[in-house]
Design a protein around this nucleic acid. Structure first.
Lengths: 327, 327
DNA sequence: GAGTTTGTTGCAAACGTTTGCAGTCTCATC
DNA sequence: GATGAGACTGCAAACGTTTGCAACAAACTC
């Protein structure tokens, strides 16, 4: 059905290898022949068969992106940017959604391994040792988790979180709750570290509560604990948790930011639309996607790229309530 | 590097064709040999090379999903469901983001064609004639657009929109604005048809305004026209447009739903989080993704699947304001 | 017990490319 | 005018599978 090298060769009166070279080693064929062949190929609508090419070159021209949950608004901008960059570099992109399950993740990597030149693992859930085993099968770039010796793209949530603590301190908050997510989360750990260090610098106390699931339900569930530690501001593990906290506050008649300031992480679209709009730490997800693809295709080795984050101030943060004790 | 059929055959003391058959035509090999070979293959970690298999069978085990913009919250649930279903059926999924450009879309289809068993085109932008040409190259399933003779998956926005008109009529609204999106949109056209027909049945007038871009900015821009036609309720082309209308209403001090009721289409996450929460028509995007994959792999031919939609009532709709003329 | 079926296996070609090698031709060089 | 170099092209093997065909043995059929 499809036009092959052989067809072009036959019609053009040359050998298949000449046609092949016209595409992949142009300097090895007579300019006149090359033009003739290329023109003919164009007219016939010839497209190289990538599977066949892969067989002989062991390079597929494909990439894969493995994410925990595409429906989570954090991922699509990353996938989009990665796909776009891959296209610029003439590669196609497989997508695999693991549904947050480590074993599905591993199986996805193994089954994709033979069909790609490399994989981008975003926030992988599998244990470190497993990931290292997988990295021996197929080139890997890890996003959002640090693994020594493997190429990683990290988003330094620390900067943004530190900024948030500074902002809150400036607004007079003395007690900040930090709602943590899954213990395995690299982002969560570095956020906690950054919060602690910024707190030392600026004065307020940071009360860690949790872990809670990184969902709205988790946020709602965390509200009680946040109130219990006497916090006037809360740093949520991510935007979803922050939204859950906002909903819980609304339900209980606690005004935001009047009585409680809330800060999220991720800057998902919902952060802009909820009321009050959510102050949050924006992650450079698009940059991360592009950087991951460049790392994979650039063959730059094990380099680690660290990208900055920034605080986006919206309506969910405000001056600390004057406390009765102070009045 | 990777283990091949040949390796398994050599170590197992049988011919490659026997190993091949142990996998793809088990009934043709002696049960004892088969078990032995399969066990050996497992131990060696053998994985069939899909590219090589594709070369000889002309079936790749891959699918592609082509979307206009993955970052648009409408698409990820569809992609997720499609990917999941494809995995169940042992297929991998390519993703292509066309950035809303018809020519990128076409190029994506052409360049993916050789590497997949079929493609799912979601809300394709290319002209009908082009799509038909592409369908001759590679099996296509179209989602969200009707093309006679091609397998399509449609989400019958009509049901939901009709429900919205009925709801509004029941709340006493007599003048409903319909903010339309791109003229080429099949969804938009059927929404308009359904609104008109429901209006005839339930009484209110429908005033069509637009077209406006299907974005928040578009919604904000449409506000003036909506007010100008004297509408007390508005059906937006999609949730983004509805959010833009909500923002514009807020800016102008028009209370929602007190003075204006707003209905969106898509039920994106932001619809739940904005205040007032948005009444909207929920699309069965997950079902659509699964149906598209089933259509592609089931070889069911040109069947068209139509899925229902339902109205999700939230806070942005309420009783029509009592008008001075009536008082 | 000759002929036929059935079950199991091996052989080899084919799928569409790439690429090392060798052949041919042209042209400059001494 | 032989020699060598360089440019171009063809040949054929290789990549890892699948699959039609043939070979063979064992088990039936009458």
């Amino acid at each position: 059905m499809a036009v092959t090298l052989k067809d072009v060769a036959r019609i053009g009166g040359v050998h298949v290898s000449t046609v092949s070279r016209a595409f992949s080693a142009p300097h090895l064929v007579n300019p006149a022949t090359r033009e003739r062949v290329l023109a003919l190929a164009r007219d016939l609508g010839y497209r190289p068969n990538r599977a066949a090419r892969a067989l002989s070159t062991r390079r597929t021209g494909n990439l894969g992106v493995v994410v925990a949950d595409i429906a989570n608004p954090f991922f699509p901008p990353l996938v989009k940017a990665a796909q776009e960059r891959a296209r610029e570099r003439d590669h196609h992109v497989f997508i695999a959604d693991t549904d947050e399950q480590a074993d599905v993740e591993e199986e996805a990597v193994r089954s994709l391994a033979g069909q790609v030149d490399g994989l981008v693992l975003v926030s992988p859930r599998a244990p470190e040792q497993r990931i290292r085993e997988l990295a021996a099968q197929v080139p890997l770039v890890i996003v959002n988790r640090r693994l020594r010796g493997l190429p990683c793209v990290l988003m330094d949530v620390g900067r943004g979180v530190g900024g948030a603590v500074a902002l809150l301190a400036g607004l007079g908050h003395r007690d900040i709750a930090l709602v943590s997510g899954p213990a395995a989360s690299w982002t969560g750990r570095s956020a906690a570290r950054a919060a602690a260090s910024a707190a030392r610098e600026h004065g307020p106390r940071v009360h860690r509560v949790g872990p809670y699931p990184p969902t709205e339900e988790g946020g709602a569930a965390a509200f009680g604990a946040v109130a219990a530690v006497g916090a006037t501001a809360v740093l949520a593990h991510n935007d979803l948790v922050a939204l859950g906290l906002l909903a819980a506050a609304r339900d209980r008649g606690v005004p935001v930011p009047g009585r409680l300031s809330v800060v999220g992480v991720d800057d998902t679209p919902a952060a802009r639309h909820t009321r009050p709009a959510l102050t949050t730490v924006a992650m450079p997800t698009g940059d991360a996607g592009r950087a991951a693809v460049d790392l994979l295709l650039g063959g730059a080795g094990a380099g680690t790229v660290t990208l900055g984050t920034r605080l986006v101030e919206r309506g969910s943060t405000g001056p600390a309530p004057s406390r009765p004790a102070q009045a």
